[in-house]
Amino acid sequence: MNNKYLGKSIVIFSFVATIMIVVSIVYMVSEMYLNGKDYLTWEFLTEAPTKGMTAGGIFPAIVGTVLLVILMSIACVPLGTITAIYLNEYSNKKSIITKMIRFAVNTLAGIPSIVFGLFGLGFFIQFVGSGMDNVFSEPGQIQWGQPNILWASMTMAFLTIPIVIVSVEETLKSVPDELRAGSLALGATKWQTIKKIVIPNSISGILTGAILAIGRGAGEVAPILFTGAAYFLPYTPTQLTDQFMNLGYHIYVMATQSTDVEATKGIQYATAFILLACTFFLSFIAIIIRYRFRKKINI
């Protein structure tokens, strides 16, 4: 085949591939919307499920999902950022310890999410939680050693930390070394340089990491199966030791565990649509913050 045709066919192939992505997204969203639109009412958003979850709303699941993602972000964004800063700014890139950390991060990113769920159950609930009960709770009382929104968020944070680390590290790398040298040459310490020069120039990358983590965390169900998601709760969590409902898990429950699957079909579509909207909304907040920071830097 001569080069001219090869060049043309690559253009066509890449265009078709792009179109396929757009088409499948449009199809998915419209399918969810069209099949669920009859259920998308104000009551649906603000009420708890009723009649054995074949009617009513999904309010507890919305709140549970949002709280889960917020708690998860509070844990994974700072921890991931600090790790990325250590890896990129402080560690000796050739040392065995650094290589081990990198290997661990990459491995963590490749672990199936259900394994995180089991890890959360074993580590957070049975080990940390039970340990806390031994110390803080009345004898025989179980307060922390059971599934709750805190442990679910922490488990989810473990799942999303590699995403944050990779994203933050990429931006740290993109901060020119001349800026670091300029700061150090003025007598700034390494930490001052990181705090005043490197981090302010990396805010958008840190928030990109947060956006990606939110997207992942809002959609995953497996890590919270054993660590805090509830089948049905008519109320929303008020403290860290409460269980919670979750949109993704709710869809799963309705599709597989319901007494009347046919009756829940529309609710499932509508719930999926709301899950998508929630994820978009949370990402949108982060995007707005990132936009503000970018504007502030490029005065």
């Binding site: 040298a181 040459a185 830097i297």
Partner: peptide, 9 residues
């Protein structure tokens, strides 16, 4: 420095 390196401030 050779390349001017003002901070993005």
């Amino acid at each position: 420095f050779q390349k001017s390196n003002p901070f993005p401030k």
